[in-house]
Design a protein around this nucleic acid. Structure first.
Lengths: 152, 152
DNA sequence: ACACTCCGTGGACGCCATCGACCGGAGCCT
DNA sequence: AGGCTCCGGTCGATGGCGTCCACGGAGTGT
């Protein structure tokens, strides 16, 4: 993970569809060298995936909610997690410090669907209570921040 | 935005680096047809960007926090937003219903940096108070959910 | 029926991805 | 020091891909 690798990661975070040839020009290596480096970043787990970022409304997901979860004192956290994993509406899941063990980011089409999701969450074994906040608008999301040149 | 467009969006959400030729095979069209459709999805704002998803720890961003912001009663929301926009640590920014006007997802390298960020947030004109939750671990993030075949 | 538009196909051509061969420097053993 | 090995790069070749363009059929309004 040297300076060139960091440049490659930064370039691909900005535009995942850059060709190897273009990446090579940007970092001053040959295309095969870049190909190999990127391959290692992928198999080494640094690059997890390449995703198109889509306007949620246009795929029928206009409602974004952030939901805090309080667990029962005797809950099995792994089971709760597994239940959440089965709910495709939950796009992100953080295990948090604090009273609320989890914070979920969920996306649904309508408020009615959100209601159903919350009911399902509250019914989930191990879940004591939920607290839902609705995002009225998303100002930005997953903005990549420039990589600080830390020598590691 | 027909069924084929939805397939293309779904394929690219799963893997943004698929070639046009491969997309074409998957949806049963020719490569130029796919090229044109994807171009229209991009310029029409449906596809906003293509990003590599990176393991945050490996780029020195091991600490994730979710921060709720309460505004002063006389705050100018646009100014507050603009101040947030200047802080690269803030990866996502949602305008929320409820007492906390904003919910921010921030990523920093260390707890010390988080402390500095919180201080800066509290000093920001228009910000009355902040409430920070620390993510101990990220179970998953930005998992794409399958597109429901809504006819719109 | 005609013309127009939209959206696709097929062909062509230059660039790109990817493989294999080669090469030079770093580290190490003798 | 000399030489071995390994790592990681360049170079060259080739098959596939991206992308432009000309063409054609379905649907539509006049």
């Amino acid at each position: 993970m040297d300076a060139i690798d960091r440049s490659l990661v930064e370039l691909l975070r900005g535009n995942a569809r850059l060709s190897y040839a273009e990446l090579a020009r940007q970092v001053g290596l040959s295309a095969p060298a870049v190909h190999e480096r990127v391959g290692k970043l992928e198999s080494g787990g640094v690059i997890r995936a390449y995703r198109a970022e889509v306007e949620p409304e246009s795929i029928g997901l206009g409602v974004t909610a952030l939901i805090g979860i309080v667990e029962d004192s005797d809950a099995d956290t792994d089971d709760v997690l597994e239940a959440f994993r089965q709910m495709p509406e939950i796009e992100s899941c953080y295990f948090m410090a604090g009273v609320e063990s989890f914070l979920l980011k969920a996306r649904v089409g309508t408020i009615a669907e959100l209601e159903q999701l919350i009911v399902r969450l509250n019914r989930t074994p191990g879940v004591a209570s939920t607290r839902t906040g609705i995002a009225l608008s998303t100002k930005w999301e997953n903005r990549p921040q420039p990589i600080e040149p830390v020598t590691s």
